[in-house]
Amino acid sequence: MTALDDTFDSPATREAARAALTAARPDATAAEWRPLGRGNRKETALATLADGDHLVVQAATDPAAVRSERALLDAIADRTSVPVPTALASERVGDAAALVTEHVDGRDLHERFTALGVSVRRDLARAFGRSLAELHEAFRFERYGSVAVPARPDATAAEPAVELVAGAASGEDVPETGGTDWAAWLGAYGRSGLARLPAAFDGLRVDLATLFDDPEVESAPPARLFPWDFRPGNALVTDGELAAVLDWEAPLAAAPALSLAKAEYLVADWYVEESEPLREAFRAGYESVRPCPAVDPVHRAAAICRTAVDSNGVVTNPGYPELSREKSVSFHRRALEDVLAASDIE
């Protein structure tokens, strides 16, 4: 049995988790806590209650981020049919905050995807495409950048949030631009990913930089929700159907083509060698809601650069079982080589 004190790293996140769980289920007692993972921004645990029920508790030392994720979860549930866990409560205690959601039964799609039948994989790719299109239809912004609830000095994580806006603020995942010039924002986004790539990519660096320095793209495409971590690794599946999409922290606003390129890489290319049927299914799902935007080489290059290496500088591992680092580098490099071959860079 794991206790609360052994689940969250700091007293602040422990107290926030305790307060949020109490707000969600005032009369319940957690019989056991089980860590589910520690990301760059938050800690997540499964709380098993004395009555046998399960709840998921996420805590972070960034109350504004918790408040924004709660607002986004509520808005997705209200505006779309995208399956997300129901947010039950969120609380701020000092400099930390926690969010409690329902626990959704299902299998980790990252671990299951390659074992599923071909038709089931296509159906899931179609569901991802449809979900992304619904998000693009439901969320519109005035600029490109980070998406958050407008900050207020008296705001609490528990307070209902009714507005999400895109701001020009910069950060780990957001370029330092004003957020109104799409070519500048996309170029900066791509270059930030390019800077993370290890030496094995040096032979491509000059051509990729040229692609990002003056991207030939639509001048002012609409800014829509960009769920940059929208992938099977953040999804649960039950009986071959998408049961829930998880992890909505730190969302962005960008042109639809960029999020389409990134999601295609993570859904269609990531797991199988024959990716075209999955890409077709993904796009068919998207087009069942809205027309597909034109995806250019610069969109793909930016998406791959930002996916190939995480924010800690670690090369990401496609497939399941996951590829070794050496094979992962080759996977991402080949993808970038294909993009450059399709571009006008000579």
Rank of each mutant, 00 (worst) to 15 (best):
A12I: 06
N40T: 03
D338F: 00
A138C: 15
A169D: 10
V217F: 05
C292N: 09
S275V: 01
V329D: 04
A16Q: 01
W182F: 05
L21D: 15
G193I: 02
V100Q: 11
C305A: 05
A151Y: 06
A335L: 01
A50R: 05
G285C: 09
P11S: 03
V217H: 04
P232R: 05
A24H: 04
G52N: 12
L132T: 07
I304A: 06
C292Y: 05
G129M: 08
E216W: 05
A45Q: 07
A200K: 12
G203P: 14
P251Y: 15
L132W: 05
T180S: 06
R279H: 06
A161F: 03
A50N: 11
A30N: 09
S219F: 14
A77Q: 08
R300S: 04
K327R: 14
R300E: 01
A158W: 04
A89Q: 12
E216F: 03
V84A: 11
R290Y: 01
D51A: 10
G285R: 09
L88P: 08
L132S: 12
A133V: 07
V309S: 06
A127E: 11
P175R: 02
G52Y: 13
W228D: 06
A155K: 02
A255H: 02
T80H: 02
P277R: 00
P83S: 07
S68T: 14
Y265F: 04
